[in-house]
C-alpha cells in the first residue's frame, strides 16, 4: 500500500492540473512540462504528451500553431468549452474532498 502513494495521488489529479494551467493561458508542451516537472507532478515529457493526446481526444483541450517574434512556430494547447466545464466540476469536488481527507488523516491532538 505504501509502495508509491505519491504516484497514485498524482495519477488521479495531474490531468486536472493540466486543465488548470491551460485555463490561465494557452501553453506549449515544454512550458507545461517545466511547470509540471518543477512541481514533481510528472517525471518527463514522456508522461505529458500521452496525457495531452488523451485530453485532446476527449475534446477537453485543442491545439493550434502560434509563431513567436524570436523563437520558432510552436504548437500551443488551450482549454475547450468542455475542458472548462470539466475543470469547474473538478474544482467543486476537490475542495470538499481534500477537506474530508485532511479531517480523516489528521493527527489526533488529544493523544
Amino acid at each position: 500500500m505504501t509502495a508509491d502513494v505519491g504516484s497514485q495521488l498524482r495519477k488521479g489529479v495531474v490531468e486536472y492540473c493540466v486543465l488548470g494551467l491551460l485555463a490561465r493561458e494557452p501553453m506549449y508542451g515544454w512550458q507545461l512540462a517545466e511547470l509540471l516537472t518543477g512541481r514533481g507532478l510528472i517525471a518527463s515529457i514522456g508522461t505529458l504528451y500521452p496525457m495531452l493526446t488523451r485530453l485532446r481526444t476527449q475534446g477537453l483541450v485543442s491545439s493550434f500553431d502560434r509563431a513567436s517574434d524570436a523563437g520558432p512556430v510552436r504548437k500551443y494547447y488551450r482549454l475547450t468549452g468542455a475542458g472548462t466545464g470539466e475543470l469547474e466540476v473538478f474544482r467543486e469536488q476537490w475542495a470538499p474532498f481534500a477537506s474530508t481527507v485532511n479531517e480523516l488523516i489528521e493527527k489526533d491532538s488529544t493523544s
Binding site: 515544454w30 515529457i45 504528451y49 500521452p50 495531452l52 493526446t53 520558432p72
Partner: peptide, 13 residues
C-alpha cells in the same frame, strides 16, 4: 500519434 507529438514537441523546442 503520441510518438509524433513527442518528437514534434522536442524538435520544436
Amino acid at each position: 500519434e503520441v510518438a509524433k507529438e513527442i518528437t514534434d514537441g522536442v524538435a520544436e523546442e
